[in-house]
Nucleic acid binder design. Structure first.
Length: 561
RNA sequence: UGGCCCAUGGUGUAAUUGGCAACACAGCUGGUUUUGGUCCAGUCGUUCUAGGUUCGAGUCCUAGUGGGCCAACCA
């Protein structure tokens, strides 16, 4: 989809309106502001694509800003992971910023506010402050310290900064309006005392600014023009503007906050807290478990950055509640992988097939196309021999004409190989088929151009030559939750909906060309799905993750029964 | 018994700003195919309700209904 054809989302409309109203395009600037207290997930990806997409669209800088005002929760490890994720998605930030870099400026501004009588030190407990806050329907009442004189406020605030007080002893509050219908305007806390080392400023500070006092001011310092956040921050906008009103220099750009609805994905949860719960309860192996909707999980699962960007682009951005069906994400990864993933053959549920008229102890190397969607992809050789594996599901002793696979007396094409006919089968004591005996037509070789090779046979199977097969571990993933909105039930916990079959480990038999596959390499296992090499692999053992199955209309037909 | 936000197919977003409701996904029907993949064609809607303004309303106004957010020394 070309840029000019695409319709604008409401954020772009706001920007276009600003531009029309005389806003200088050169002063456009955006930012992605994660708190380094956890891993990024698909919801963040949407925000990243929004902000960096705007940067690309308007040729404007986009900062990566870590909102690191709470040393109790934040760690350097997350900073590194977040940077890696943003880069992997394919975006380049203009400046790597930290709210903590502005602690000095913020402190100066706070002192100025105190001097103007617009901030005061409150010496009550958090319970007392909460009690006086009122409720959404009742106004709050002023703190007994609300009218402390400026000199005392300054002295106490400096004392707070110098570590003269214990945590919780004092806070700095903005003096706004205890009866505002907006709870956030009822003298919000600007600073609290925290005797904790910070991942960047270490022990330089023992007071830390709150989000509201930091975010808009950071935007102003960085001269961010449009500060985009999720809908739950809408009531914060009034406070965001109030703080800016106190210190904005009219010659400088004044940032504006605008809000959009966070994107929810069906069959998963998109909340750091809930994802953490999955990790801590060992429901998954970690933040990068391939079932996790984290960027690192999707990466390990085999998703491509392009597919995630296309997904974000397609779902767009708006202000209403939403649950995007995960099938849309799957569509985008299939669409991309269909174009780029080399085709190979692998059997995951093997059934032995013996071609009785193929000479014992011999092999034949067949030409196989690497990707029918990509003329440049070339071809490779795959070995054919007397004993092969096919999928158990691809053979039935008897079946109706809707079954385009192998049945006794029936014919089928072996992909890139020959047409075979099932003559008989052997069963174990339980009646399970353990071997199928076939004959092949030596003149029907794929691509040979013979009359026999051009015969139309309904059904083509993938296969692997047993003596040449590489044995590997295959990890099959399914949706982590059986319910579309696991956290959308008032009476049930989202953990109740964890899909017990979301992970299955099986043994796979792969064509030998795969032996040199490297971690991260993506393939289409023909007729099965897209797979990539997991990071748990080593030179001895390959491990594959199933990214997503192919669309399977046959499975749908079967399910209907 | 408050304030604010939102409402368009099953899902997500559009609608030249008041002018024939569009795109993608999913579903369903067919066609092509040496992947039951890909590809191609077709199909699926009283724009939450009721009033109002207007030649004309998804869009503007009023009321209602439904959903969401707001009382962390979190972000």
């Amino acid at each position: 989809m070309s840029e000019e054809e695409r319709s604008l989302n409401f954020i772009e409309h706001i920007i276009e309106d600003d531009l029309k109203a005389g806003y200088d395009k050169k002063s456009l600037r955006f930012r992605f502001p994660p708190e380094p207290n956890g891993y990024l997930h698909i919801g963040h990806a949407s925000s990243i694509c929004l902000n960096f997409g705007l940067g690309l669209r308007y040729d404007s800088p986009v900062n990566l800003r870590f909102d690191d005002t709470n040393p109790a929760k934040e760690e350097k490890e997350y900073v590194e992971a977040i940077k890696a994720d943003v880069e992997w998605l394919g975006y380049q930030w203009d400046t790597e910023c930290y709210a903590s870099d502005y602690f000095g400026q913020l402190y100066e501004w706070a002192v100025a506010l105190i001097k103007q009588g617009k901030a005061y030190v409150d010496s009550q407990s958090s319970e007392e402050i909460a009690d006086q806050k009122g409720t959404p329907t009742e106004p709050g009442t002023g703190s007994p310290y609300r009218n402390r004189d400026v000199a005392e406020n300054l002295r106490l605030f400096e004392g707070m900064k110098n570590g003269e007080f214990k945590e919780g002893e004092h806070v700095l509050r903005a003096k706004i309006d205890m009866s505002s219908s907006n709870m956030l305007m009822r003298d919000p806390i600007m600073y609290r005392i925290l005797h904790k080392p910070h991942h960047r400023t270490n022990t330089d500070w023992c007071i830390y600014p709150m989000y509201d006092w930091t975010h808009g001011e950071s935007d102003y310092i960085e001269q961010v023009s449009h500060s985009l956040c999720t809908l739950e921050f809408l009531p914060h906008r009034e406070l965001y503007d109030w703080f800016l009103d106190q210190l904005v220099d009219s010659k400088k750009l004044r940032p504006k906050q605008r809000e959009f609805a966070r994107r929810n994905l069906s069959h998963t949860v998109v909340s750091k807290r809930k994802l953490l719960q999955l990790v801590e309860n060992d429901v998954v192996s970690g933040w990068d478990d391939p079932r996790m909707p984290t960027i690192s999980g999707l990466r390990r699962r085999g998703y491509t950055p392009e597919s995630i960007r296309n997904f974000a682009d397609t779902i767009g951005i708006a202000k209403r509640e939403n649950v995007v069906d995960v099938s849309l994400l799957e569509f985008h990864v299939r669409e991309h992988l269909n174009r780029i993933a080399p085709r190979v053959m692998a059997v995951l549920n093997p059934l032995k097939l013996v071609i009785t008229n193929f000479p014992e102890g011999t092999e034949e190397w067949l030409d196989a196309e690497n990707n029918p969607e990509d003329a440049e992809a070339g071809s490779r050789q795959v070995p054919f021999s007397r004993e092969l594996y096919i999928e158990k599901e691809d053979f039935r002793e008897e079946a109706n004409r809707k079954f385009f696979r192998l049945k006794l007396g029936g014919e089928v094409r072996l992909k890139n190989g020959y047409i075979i006919k099932a003559e008989s089968c052997t069963k174990d004591e339980n009646g399970n088929v353990v071997e199928v005996q076939c004959t092949y037509d030596p003149k029907s070789k794929s691509g040979s151009g013979t009359e026999e090779s051009l015969r139309k046979v309904k059904g083509t199977l993938h296969w692997v030559s047993i003596p040449h097969a590489i044995e590997t571990e295959i990890r099959l993933y399914d949706r982590l939750f059986s319910d579309a909105t696991p956290d959308g039930h008032k009476d049930k916990d989202f953990m109740d909906f964890v899909n017990p079959d979301s992970f299955k480990k099986v043994k796979g038999y792969l064509e030998p060309s795969l032996k040199d596959a490297k971690i991260g390499d993506r393939f289409q296992f023909q007729r099965l799905g897209y797979f990539n090499v997991d990071s748990d692999s080593d030179s001895e053992n390959l491990i594959f993750n199933r990214t997503v199955t192919l669309r399977d209309t046959w499975a749908k037909l079967e399910q209907k029964k």
